[in-house]
Amino acid sequence: MRWDFATVIEHADVLAIGAVGTLRIFAICLVLGLGLGLPVGLGRYARNPWLRAPATAFVEFFRNTPVLVQIIWFFFALPILLPFQIGPLTAAVLGISLNSAAFSAEIYRGGIQSIERGQWDGARALGMSWLQAMRRVILPQAIKRMLPALANRAIEIFKMSTLASAVAYVELLQQGKLIASLYYNPIEVYTAVAAIFSVILWPLVQLSYWLERRLKGGE
């Protein structure tokens, strides 16, 4: 067989539009997924059952259902209950962000739990409130230990962004599908798409390795 990347290069602008879409949904889900995870993780850690029970239910539900099912549910099922439509971006963002929030919540909880009791005692003895102790003493230490896991989560979010193509959101894979169906050159297109993802993800993966090594070396 002959490789023909010319058609792919000719339509680089189509892929570029897709890449922008990929980066956009990645950025939104990264902020929402890791951001929402913190309050949920704190809820999981709370002693008050009124906080803990809903946080636990949220985490268990979203961790134990496939993201794609969630996205599809938000896109096809939820609008029936709502007076307005839900677009592909919104549905995908909802699915990926809530799923990621459930996973990152467990990272936050684990990180906070890994801090020794004595740190709390020290902060409380200074007269700090729970929130002050959390913000000034516990979280700064915990974040360091959580960084490798959070970096891994970011990588997962990036990979998950392709699922948005299932509801026809315009991202890299979706644009690849478009070119492949028009010019019947799936080998070149999907190889190119895989390569683009790989190139974007590679530094992120290296970063996660580096964080992991640093954490192992530091403790």
């Binding site: 990036f158 990979k159 998950m160 962004s161 392709t162 699922l163 193509s165 894979l173 690849g176 599908k177 492949a180 799936p186 080998i187 297109v189 999907y190 190889t191 798409v193 895989a194 993802f197 790989s198 993800l201 590679w202 993966v205």
Partner: peptide, 16 residues
């Protein structure tokens, strides 16, 4: 396989 999304891999193996 760690640096490409599973869905892209699946498409590659199915279509390409």
């Amino acid at each position: 396989f760690r640096t490409t999304p599973p869905l892209v891999q699946l498409f590659w193996f199915y279509f390409a």
